[in-house]
């Protein structure tokens, strides 16, 4: 995979902490697919929800500094795995086109930001843009066929629709397309795929997160999903780390693994589960790993048997 586009990589803070596994798996998948990027020097926190909840200008200032850093190292585009970071970066870039707003934000920065800031995109969209289904297929070592996957995007990735440009804001399908290229044939039509998980309220107001995450987990389990596939560190944390809290809230037992789409793609590419950070999941994904292996072995044997 070669491209003339220079990609600046913005990992986001959680990549260095609670979503280390997302970072590991997405860099591994990008490496295999030949997507080259360089981490933005001295990148800082985008401010996440707290910054824009407090002040749009503060949020924009924090984001703009990252976009400026990316420009300084010659990046044409900024790529991030995290939908929350992406949303903030895109909002900032859009708002900075308003001269009055820009003036207020420039006052917060060391020096005024340039008129033109680079665009930001998600790792998922970058994969979708640079790699055809055939490209992805060519790397698949073990198909995801037979695994019942509930695709879950969360609320930020696809909206606001005009800003995020991620397909239908109620029914995005890029994740399904990537999984399908990895052989997945049992991806569920998951009706809650863009409903909010409760976001960052987990700490200050636990029920807000457990009720919403609980509903998502409940429907996924009732639909007999083997796992939930996510693309947002916060969603992953709420559905996985906080799964027990959700169980208590809605009085149910779930025990359903919550994997990043990059972890599932990595498994399909035959990566070692550890290099994909699967050992970091709270609800173990071992049975998914085993099942993928078993189904592939069975298929191979069946094929071999037919040949013989």
């Amino acid at each position: 995979m070669s491209t003339s586009m220079k990609i600046g990589y913005y990992p986001g803070c959680s990549a260095k902490g609670s979503s280390l596994d997302y970072e590991l798996s997405s860099s591994e998948v990008c490496r295999i697919l030949g997507i080259v990027s360089s981490e933005i020097d001295e990148w800082n926190c985008c401010g996440s929800t707290p910054a824009h909840a407090v002040s749009t200008e503060l949020s924009a200032a924090l984001c703009t500094r990252n976009l400026v850093q990316a420009t300084k190292q010659g990046a044409d585009i900024v790529m991030t795995p995290c939908p929350s970071c992406l949303s903030n970066l895109r909002h900032a870039r859009e708002r900075m086109q308003n001269p009055e707003f820009k003036k207020r934000v420039d006052e917060l920065l060391d020096e005024p930001a340039p008129e033109v800031l680079p665009e930001a995109t998600s790792v998922m969209q970058m994969i979708g843009k640079l790699c055809s289904a055939e490209d992805i297929k060519s790397h698949v070592r073990q198909s995801l066929a037979g695994i019942r996957i509930a695709p879950y995007y969360g609320c930020l990735m696809s909206r606001p629709a005009e800003l995020m440009n991620f397909g239908d804001p109620e029914n995005p399908t890029l994740m399904e397309e990537l999984l399908a290229a990895c052989g997945a044939d049992s991806v569920l039509d998951f009706p809650l795929k863009t409903e909010c998980c409760g976001a960052s309220a987990g700490i200050p107001h636990r029920p807000l997160t457990s009720v919403n995450s609980g509903r998502i987990l409940d429907v996924a389990v009732k639909m007999e999903a083997d796992c939930i596939c996510v693309c947002c560190p916060l969603c992953q944390m709420n559905l996985d780390l906080r799964q027990k809290q959700a169980e208590r809230q809605v009085n149910a037992k779930f025990g359903i693994p919550v994997l990043y789409y990059t972890q599932l793609m990595g498994l399909a590419f035959g990566c070692d589960p550890k290099t994909l950070g699967l050992n970091k999941l709270i609800v173990s994904a071992d049975r998914i790993v085993d099942r993928i292996r078993a189904l592939n072995t069975a298929r191979k044997e069946a094929q071999g048997g037919n040949a013989a």
Binding site: C13, K16, G17, S18, L20, D41, E42, W43, N44, C45, S55, E57, L58, A61, L62, R65, E107, L108, L109, D110, L241, N279, K280, L281, I282
Partner: peptide, 27 residues
Amino acid sequence: SKGKLGFKPHVVPDGGAKAVARIFRRY
């Protein structure tokens, strides 16, 4: 136990952290 939370903060290197602090101060 899963190593999901680091005990040590990640500090932006090369004076970046100071630049961020300046944003907050001005704000």
